[in-house]
Write a protein that binds this DNA or RNA. Structure first.
Lengths: 249, 249
DNA sequence: TCAAAAGTGTTCTTATTACACCCATGG
DNA sequence: CCATGGGTGTAATAAGAACACTTTTGA
């Protein structure tokens, strides 16, 4: 094996962000129209090179802001893609990040590098440059997974929402149908959402109740995780579930 | 932002492997004694630079074999670590991989680059070079997570094992105690293991039954995943659970 | 008065939990 | 004969799944 390490220092890396949103009953992803080669003018995931003296997480945050104007977004690393020929300029591996945001809370802007930034329905995204389709699929799998482990709706829905909207969110992400009564029973039994005692207005049907998420309970959930599977005996002093499920993933 | 992309092509990346094994009731990790600078002579995770024309997964497999003699090991990408100053030679990010193996099935060898390769009890590993402690912790969390989702024992135990050994494996990884009767009931109800109608020999107590894993059922499990949470209604044609849970995580 | 979505309970089934004593072997 | 771990069942509780009709609104 080489001891001339200099040979290895000829690669670059980028971050690519997969930002999911939910609107009009549809799961969306934020894409930019590229203002740079390669693939200038094509819709792609918002991503760019990581600076030599920049941490990965920092880069992901910066790049997202530069390309879309979004800031204060919590980003989570998903996976790294490094096929040899994935980038025409040379050896470039990319670290994929993903996030969930409330579309209504943010204004998307374009920038000098991105000609445009826009939400696209997941189902309509069929072609992307580089290996971005694979990255998107990978993040989508992560999202589905997460949905079963965390009350993800918190991060995707507007501050006030109806139970049906929440259910539709679940159905859109999981691509399935859920039983209305069982869904409500389960969601309500978690005490995660608070009845606002307000009603929808101006809808051509019986107006639905509006709810908001209970931020405190939500924090508890994140710490404890949903649990299942084998339970420890009581005899021994308990280690907290948060210890088990903490940190990554 | 720079358009002189050349500036970016000055980084390197490595892979680091976290290989878990289980032996003597103890969870172990495979470390090598480094034969190269930096940190020559220190115990560290088996890792090395990725070649310019080599995919990440390929590199992980190659590096593991070169350093420890292990081949045919399934490696799974966990997370990428890229703190700016994590490597003294320059900007080097590392992609962490992890795997589970049956210690008894493999012979560990050292190599020119590694002075030695050896199993270490997790609890005894308290200091590692680079950010390897963080990487190890991250993989440990992944392992705990995985244990709740997959019958991980399959990959860690020798071909024949007792139920108590299996339970000890769970307890070691989760760092908790489990109820013997409930554990057995649950494991047996999964039909994942087959009673070999053989007994332990030479133990100073009532000999235990030996079991093996049912490879076919195990495959099914991997495809279907454990499931929980909301179940779709029956009305619609079902999409298979494997679709939902497939691919990454 | 119609269309469209909101809202609501019960029964059945399955999974999880708690818990304590006798058994077989080697030393 | 003793120490060590192997092996076993049941009752109570909790969670999940199936399922259909009435209500409220705007057009």
């Amino acid at each position: 094996m080489a001891t001339d390490f200099g040979n290895f220092f000829k690669s670059a890396f980028t971050v690519d962000n997969v930002i999911f949103g939910f609107d009009e009953g549809d799961l969306k992803v934020l894409l930019i129209k590229r203002g740079e080669e390669p693939f200038m003018g094509d819709w792609a995931l918002p991503g760019h090179f990581v600076y030599p003296a920049e941490d990965l997480d920092t880069a992901a945050i910066r790049v997202l802001e530069e390309l879309t104007g979004l800031n204060n977004v919590y980003l989570e690393q998903v996976k790294t893609f490094g096929a040899v020929d994935r980038h025409p300029f040379g050896r470039v591996i990319t670290i994929a990040y993903f996030s969930l945001i409330k579309i209504s809370n943010y204004t998307i802007q374009s920038s000098s590098i991105a000609l445009q930034a826009q939400w696209h329905s997941i189902s309509q995204v069929t072609e992307l440059p580089f290996d971005h389709m694979v990255i998107l699929q990978s993040c989508l799998n992560r999202l589905r997974w997460l949905l079963r482990l965390r009350p993800v709706g918190f991060e995707l829905l507007p501050p006030k929402f109806t139970l049906t909207e929440l259910q539709h969110l679940y159905e859109a992400i999981l691509e399935t149908d859920l039983d209305k009564r069982n869904f409500r029973k389960k969601i309500l039994s978690m005490n995660l959402i608070i009845d606002l005692d307000e009603m929808q207005e101006g809808v051509a049907h019986r107006p639905a109740r509006l709810y908001k998420f209970d931020r405190k309970r939500y924090q508890q959930f994140l710490e404890e995780g949903f649990s299942f599977e084998l339970k420890e005996t009581r005899k021994k002093e308990r280690i907290s579930r948060s210890q088990l499920l903490s940190a990554d993933q």
